[in-house]
Amino acid sequence: MLATAFSLSVATTFAQGDADSMMKMLDDEDAAVPKKEDVNFTFKATRLINGSTTESLGAGVLDMRISHRFGKINQGAENFFGIDNANTRIGLDYGITKYLMVGIGHNVLGKENDGFAKVKILQQKTEGMPFSLSFLTGASIQTTKAPTLPTTDMKWYFSNRVCYFNQVLISRKFNDKLSLMLMPSILHNNLVDSTKFDNNTIALGVGGRIKLSKRVAFTGEYYYRFTGTDNNVGSAKTYNSLSLGFDIETGGHVFQLHITNSPGISERIMLGQTTDTWSKGDIHYGFNISRVFTIVKPKEFKKH
């Protein structure tokens, strides 16, 4: 009798549990394959604040970016606490492949035209690769008028206007909330104001984000300079760049709002010409907005 009851229960579980056992089959099969998925969305955008992140645009995606930095907050009521002065960078970025993106831009401050390429070399995986690594290389040309030179036989070379920058971006998404990044960087100015100044600014950046909610993240980035710390811009001393902000996502867009001591947006200014300091309250309020357009549709959406 006991055996009967046992057999019956086996038979019934067999019948009822079929869908469950089929689902278990799928789960087991899944579990048998080692999960080496890409860890995506380490940051919400290709820029953290002033500098870049390891994030790339998708293939065939065009990103129009407008970055704005107002004047210094401590400029007083007559300048509406900095709002009356502003610097802008207008840029266009394009994702050639999933791993390679390029961009150009124009900065109002210093009348700079810049261009860069960023390639993702390592991709953080759920198992195995613990971090992502991207390499960014770029150059910028100042288009300000050539200065009047002391003697007529002196020449103002085009190369004087050019600077180069390279960054290695190493990021890790620790969990849903926390992502951190290291950004070893070098900026080379072909021309500096004095022979006493260093042409190379070598810096190590640290940055990160903490998600406060599904749609709001707190971000920060700091570039510590090892060389070029005594370089002046005119008579103004230069400082390390420190920026704090929020990424706010409103459905289709990411707004980045921040405060920073860098007066402009380019790598040249962020790394080498940050003439303002937090300690004196020389802080700029700013924002980045971006609008993406899909130029080349992913294959799933191509009309056959």
Partner: peptide, 14 residues
């Protein structure tokens, strides 16, 4: 897969 990468990110994250 979305036509727009950003939408895919928001879909997954939010």
């Amino acid at each position: 897969k979305f036509e727009r990468e950003l939408m895919q990110q928001h879909f997954n994250e939010n």
